[in-house]
Simulated scan of single mutants.
Amino acid sequence: MNASRDPNPDKVGEALNAQRFQMIKDIARELKGDVVFPTCFDTACRLRQELQNPDLPISRISSIVSLEPLVAAKLMQLANSALYRARGMPALDLKAAISRLGVDLVRITALAIAMRQLMRSREMAVFSDITLALWNHSLKTAAAARILARIHTRINPEEALLAGLVHDLGAFYMLYRAAQYSELLIRPDTVKFLIMQWHESIGVTLLSALGMPEEIVNATIDHDQQRAVPETVRSLADLVYIGNILAGTHFEWLYQDFDPDAGEIGVVRKRFADILPEMESDAQEMQAVLA
């Protein structure tokens, strides 16, 4: 379409910079308070419905909660707060956090967050396709990170799962914030550009504000920035980086055309091709939990 005839052209140049500056400024202000925002509407609906069942077993609660990035992060924050943190090491995964908090508190906390999400989810309806794709990407990354941890390292697979699950929480948050601007609601390409440029740094700040363990926060830094993968997978950051590539990286959920077998991404996918079927299977099983 000719830009001169488009009533809602995407912003460029100084206009885009001004919009970006205002959005980032607003995000910085909000991060100083209590941060709650919706991720995937369908996930929040099903989570709310499930947790209203007083007879839900702990195994089911753990499975459901592990699929919702913000709820998972909030439960980790609560478990490692001064009120609940036990002497010694902090809780580094959801299993430990749920064990520390107890079933009733987990149910109440998760339900409260889900309800607050649902109250705001209409604001993100225009981005529903992106949020669903991003949620699916997060599940695949989490599955891949857990498998890699089990096969290639001595890192707790559940800690790797959590890191993979929340690695793109900054993108969810930016979608929520973009929905607050009427001009961005009708300019999805501008929103995608902003997410590509800022979701990593915003995510690190967000996870820190939510009180996530330092190991998890550090593992998400620059996860979309291409770099050489070490011969030996050693760190949580390696697991998130490789898992993110195997799950499609940001190109997939932003619907950009790219060759997954080209360049460094292709090298990584070829090197770890043997786990791709298991990653897909595990991700589908996680999705089925909330079916």
Rank of each mutant, 00 (worst) to 15 (best):
S201T: 14
Q77L: 10
L194F: 00
A125I: 12
A228T: 14
G170N: 02
P54F: 06
A209F: 01
L276W: 14
V166T: 04
R100E: 00
N8V: 09
S66D: 14
G164T: 00
K192G: 07
E285G: 15
G164S: 07
R120D: 15
Q19N: 12
L111A: 08
N17I: 08
Q77G: 13
H167E: 07
L290F: 04
I202F: 00
A125M: 14
T220M: 08
E123F: 12
I155F: 04
A3P: 15
T220H: 07
S4G: 10
P90F: 11
I64Y: 09
H199K: 01
V103I: 10
Q22E: 14
S66M: 13
G211Y: 02
A112Y: 02
E200M: 13
L206G: 03
A96E: 09
T220V: 07
A110C: 06
T141Y: 01
L169Y: 02
A219F: 01
I265Q: 09
M124T: 15
V36I: 15
W198M: 06
R269G: 04
V191S: 10
T190K: 07
R20Y: 08
A283M: 00
T131Y: 10
L16T: 02
G263N: 13
A273Y: 11
A97H: 08
Y176T: 00
W253F: 05
L51A: 09
Y181C: 06
A291Y: 08
S121L: 09
K11W: 13
E50H: 15
Q52R: 08
A143D: 07
G248W: 01
V71Q: 06
T153Y: 12
P54V: 09
I58V: 15
T131V: 03
L134V: 08
F127A: 04
A283Q: 02
I216T: 11
A237L: 11
E278Q: 14
D282C: 10
D259R: 00
G243M: 09
I27H: 04
D222L: 01
A179P: 02
Q49P: 00
A91P: 07
S62R: 12
N8D: 11
A28H: 06
E215F: 07
E50D: 14
V65T: 05
L67H: 14
A73K: 05
Q19K: 05
D257N: 14
V229D: 07
G266K: 05
L132M: 12
D189V: 05
E278P: 10
R154Y: 13
M76S: 04
F21M: 15
I195H: 03
L236R: 02
N218F: 11
M196D: 13
E214H: 11
V166F: 05
P9T: 02
A178W: 11
A178E: 13
V191D: 03
I108C: 06
A228S: 15
A133R: 10
S281E: 12
F193T: 10
K11P: 13
A110S: 02
T232E: 09
Y173S: 01
R85I: 05
D257Q: 15
D238E: 05
P260A: 01
I98L: 07
T109L: 00
W135T: 08
A149C: 06
W135H: 12
